[in-house]
Design a protein around this nucleic acid. Structure first.
Lengths: 206, 206
DNA sequence: CGGTTGACAATATGTCCATATTGAAACCAG
DNA sequence: CTGGTTTCAATATGGACATATTGTCAACCG
């Protein structure tokens, strides 16, 4: 039905306003009234599409996590199409999650603001964990393939390494955003440590 | 002067109340009124000791970071006194920062709640970065010593590794608190990766 | 011993917020 | 044309909050 699509657009419009406000001033900045104003609609319309503020935020968060997944997906597919190594795909996929430019920095801030609240809110944690688990599984899969083609030593456990890499990237992002670590240093650290997991050369490449 | 000491106690009393409230319900849970009630004092008294709510929170945060530093300090000093390896000191020092039991979990939640807000607030970021830099420097120093006594291979850069380890522990803590990674898995991952930095055996031990 | 000052309590003020309510268009069914 | 339903806007309500103001009481001091 076309009306359902229209509704979806409205919700997206509101969710985008939420993202902009969160990027600017954290989750506290996204009040219902301000969101309505930012989206150019009335408070009543927001209420019409979301039963409560929590609903609105949760919906916005699902969009944010979906975008994060898309970013990683697109990047690793690009590498695949250019016949790159798994190491390249992993490195670039993980780099995509670091706040290295203004665009990724904004996305990172939004994503992190939600993550911070998720510590106290199981429903938000569920939204996050689902996507995060998918990305981590993809990563572990990549490392497993690295075993087969010789990029990764056999004693590297895919699961454990995936957990470790995901956690480190998360922490690096925070440190960069807090100004505790320069972006360049974070990038270098990440590359060096991905290299540690993928020291070998793929047998199918020259 | 004894009165200054008295004042310090009052501030500590209030800061402790803030910590309890933040542990229970995030930074939003710590309103001035609730903090006063939790500390068993009046709102007026809180205002008397802190010029603003931000002041109060910043003070509480400095105490939290100081405790984090103390924990690491105490732990590594313990190892030192028992003539343990640097690897043991580093491992235990980093473990201390993971939310593995209720006590550390509470402390981690408080610390993280502040860190999340610090993303938008340079003054809180400064409080955090100072302590964090000190801990990271200590860690890098330990890795450097590992070079000398043979625990750490020469091609491991102390600075880069310290940044990486700190970031990974930060991320692991978040994943554990969100329920994305079981505490046991986080611990195993951490131990395995500390082992990767310190594969060698200290020449001064049997 | 009267007054000044520091340490607090109680209350007042005004802002901001989530949500409920009311109502008005537009659209559709009969 | 009519009555109902969907979709939205405007406003009302009530609570929570940070902070200012005022009041109180004791100690210290000249």
């Amino acid at each position: 039905m076309a009306t359902e699509e229209y509704h979806e657009q409205r919700r997206a419009q509101i969710a985008e306003a939420v993202e902009r406000l969160v990027a600017a001033g954290g989750l506290d900045g996204a009040t219902v009234a301000r969101t309505a104003a930012e989206a150019g609609v009335s408070v009543g319309l927001v209420q019409h599409y979301f039963a409560s503020k929590d609903d609105m935020l949760r919906y916005a968060y699902t969009r944010v996590t979906a975008r994060a997944m898309d970013r990683v997906d697109r990047r690793s597919r690009e590498i695949e199409q250019h016949h790159g190594t798994i190491r390249q795909a992993v490195r670039d996929g993980l780099c995509e999650r670091l706040p290295l430019d203004e665009d990724r920095r904004a996305h990172w801030r939004v994503s992190f603001a939600f993550a911070a609240r998720a510590v106290d809110r199981p429903d938000l944690a569920a939204v996050r964990n689902e996507t995060e688990a998918a990305i981590r599984a993809r990563l572990a899969e990549g490392i497993g393939h690295g075993h087969e083609c010789g990029e990764v030593p056999e004693d590297v456990d895919p699961q454990t390494s995936a957990v470790w890499l995901m956690a480190a990237v998360e922490g690096l992002g925070l440190h960069v955003c807090l100004g505790a670590v320069p972006a360049a240093a974070a990038l270098e650290t990440l590359e060096r440590n991905v290299m540690a997991v993928f020291p070998g050369r793929c047998r199918q490449h020259d």
